[in-house]
Simulated assay, not measured.
Amino acid sequence: MLEQSQIKTPEYVSINFSIAGIGSRAAAFLIDSLIIGVFNFVIFILALFSLDSIIYLLFYNPDSLWILAWAVLLIFVINWSYFFLFEYFYNGKTIGKRLIGIRVIQDNGHRLTLLSSFIRNFLRVIDDLPGGYFIGIIMIFFHNKHKRLGDLMAGTIVVHDKAPNKKKKRSKSVSSDKQNSQQHVIAFDSVLINQLTEHDYQLVKTYCQRYPDLPKHEKASLTRQVGEIILPKVHLDQHLNNLTEVDNILHQLYSRLKDEWSY
Rank of each mutant, 00 (worst) to 15 (best):
A27S: 13
F59D: 11
I229A: 00
K97M: 03
Y90G: 07
L48M: 09
I35N: 06
S171V: 09
E218D: 15
I102T: 15
S173M: 15
H239I: 02
L112D: 07
L57Y: 11
I140R: 10
I45D: 07
R124K: 13
G21Y: 03
Y263N: 14
S14E: 15
Y201V: 05
Y254R: 14
H143T: 13
A163I: 14
L222N: 00
Y211G: 00
R111P: 00
I22Q: 03
N61C: 06
R25T: 06
V104P: 03
I43D: 03
D177P: 04
F89P: 08
I140P: 00
G101M: 03
G155K: 09
Y211V: 03
Y56P: 00
H217Y: 15
P130N: 09
K216G: 10
L57V: 07
R25A: 06
R103S: 06
D32Y: 00
L129Q: 08
L250N: 07
K168P: 04
N108F: 06
S64E: 14
I119R: 08
M1T: 06
H239V: 01
L85N: 07
S255W: 14
V158D: 01
R210M: 11
S175P: 01
S221W: 12
N180D: 13
Q4F: 09
D52Q: 14
R120W: 04
L58S: 01
G131S: 11
N91T: 09
W66C: 04
K172T: 11
N16A: 05
W80Q: 11
H143Q: 09
S176I: 14
I138P: 02
K147Y: 00
I45W: 09
A187E: 15
P130G: 07
F118V: 01
F59C: 05
R210L: 09
L152Q: 06
N144H: 13
F39Y: 13
I15D: 04
L203K: 13
V42T: 08
L123P: 02
N248H: 11
D189T: 06
S117D: 01
D200Q: 07
G136W: 10
A27H: 09
R111L: 12
H251F: 13
G150M: 00
V234M: 00
W261G: 05
L115W: 12
S33N: 12
Q179G: 10
S33Y: 10
K166C: 03
G132W: 08
R103L: 05
W70L: 15
D107K: 11
S64V: 12
I54T: 13
V158N: 02
A20M: 01
E218F: 09
F39G: 00
H146K: 12
L99C: 02
D200F: 04
L152F: 10
K233C: 01
T197S: 10
V159F: 05
Y263K: 13
H143K: 08
I186W: 09
I78R: 10
D213R: 11
L65I: 13
